[in-house]
Design a protein around this nucleic acid. Structure first.
Lengths: 237, 237
DNA sequence: CGTAGTTACGTACACCGTACGTAATGCGCT
DNA sequence: AGCGCATTACGTACGGTGTACGTAACTACG
């Protein structure tokens, strides 16, 4: 009877070390770091139990002593990179602070392009996620609003950032392991889109595409999106 | 020489029937419908090439005559359910129209809980996606704004809806195939969260949780979120 | 000091996406 | 009408996946 758990468990509630038995060879941080290293270098799909175990230098099944399911390995990864969030002393200007939070999250996701795909509301309980959320709330202290509303604001900000970066990265991530280049794939899609629009079935989209887009600055577009969210919750005027 | 394509192809650009050879036994719609049926009934992870083929009643590898990669099967699925969007003649009240669009998308995602997970910006070129986008732009005709801005509005609205519904469904989808119930898993997470907040390390979150949430009406919260987005782009006053 | 609980990990199973080869089919052309 | 060949159909096979289970080594506690 090895006493394998058949009860729902949050990985963060399970202690890393119980005291009995041989000293574990690795820490959770080790494992998360190994998985993150693989995901950064070879993409999320390369993160398999075997691969991570090999990166650590241990047998595949040994991993299951630390992590009951692969899903939990993902949770470890998300928490690990969440720890890269730089938390500062809020300066009293909640707008500036929240913009900074958003920009930082975007940079984080550019550094770890697999993050948007793993971003899930159920991962919101990890230690670093809690610290991050508390920090956001601290930034919002100057704002006169219920905490419930502030949570909604933070949630929507995170959601918009995630979606935005996901769309920035989607094709790149998707074509990483395909035999043709991202440019080729994009060209194929744009070409088909053009042919469809040319049929005249989508007059407004045709107009949209013939419109002069003006100078395109991704940073500015991103900032604009963030400000729309902030405006929505606390109109400037 | 069977002439297997080694060139990037958008599945929508490849004709369903070339005219030569035996008449294909199924249509794209048949295949998409079978996959959707499986995803609805058994979850997205149950959608495998073998399973879909069995549902259709053909050999596994025959599917590859219709769909070059599994990824394309996903694209077919998203397009198929996108066709469930009811498109109406816009009534001139763009706010009401957009709210209706958002509500419909949410219902669609509740009907097909796997949709948020498949929602990807690269799928925006399918026939039904194009019709949907054109319809959104038609709803926004009364709004004096560049098409670029309107596209951003639609994008953000879709993003917020997707995120919102994803968080509504995440735990349900996650625990569908787990040995314990969703309630158990939720209870475990909430319990752990409470214990963490009780340490006093997160004063604002503690305050948030002790705050009287008032009556909770999911529909109202959703509507509120949508209206925040609309307000952001076109302030009411 | 025994022993119970843990760690480590090899083996095995069911399932996955899909490359490839072959047989049957029926359209388009002469 | 009938030939040629592109296309469909699909069985087999390969390398990968998550993980259940059994066993051997180890160590902290009673």
């Amino acid at each position: 009877m090895a006493g394998r758990a058949a009860v729902p468990e949050v990985i963060w509630a399970r202690p890393e070390r119980t005291g009995r038995g041989p000293r574990p060879a690795y820490t959770r941080a080790d494992i998360a770091a190994a998985a993150v290293r693989i995901a950064d270098a070879e993409g999320l799909d390369a993160v398999s139990m075997r691969h991570v175990a090999a990166e650590l230098g241990c047998g595949t099944m040994s991993l299951y002593n630390y992590v009951p399911r692969k899903e939990d390995l993902y949770e470890l990864m998300v928490d690990a990179v969440s720890g890269e969030h730089e938390l500062w002393e809020p300066g009293g200007d909640w707008r500036a602070d929240m913009l900074r939070v958003g920009r930082q999250t975007r940079e984080l996701m550019h550094r770890h392009p697999w993050l948007p795909r793993l971003m899930s509301p159920v991962y919101g309980f990890s230690p670093n996620a809690l610290r991050y959320l508390e920090h956001c709330l601290a930034c919002l202290d100057p704002l006169d609003m219920t905490y419930g509303m502030k949570m909604q604001l933070v949630g929507m900000l995170n959601g918009v950032v995630t979606m935005y970066v996901a769309s920035e990265l989607a094709t790149a991530e998707r074509t990483r392991s395909l035999p043709w280049s991202e440019e080729q794939e994009n060209a194929a899609r744009i070409g088909y889109l053009g042919s469809q629009v040319a049929t005249g079935a989508y007059p407004r989209m045709a107009a949209a595409f013939s419109e002069d887009p003006g100078p395109i600055d991704p940073e500015a577009v991103f900032r604009f999106a963030l400000e729309r969210v902030l405006d929505a919750f606390a109109p400037k005027g």
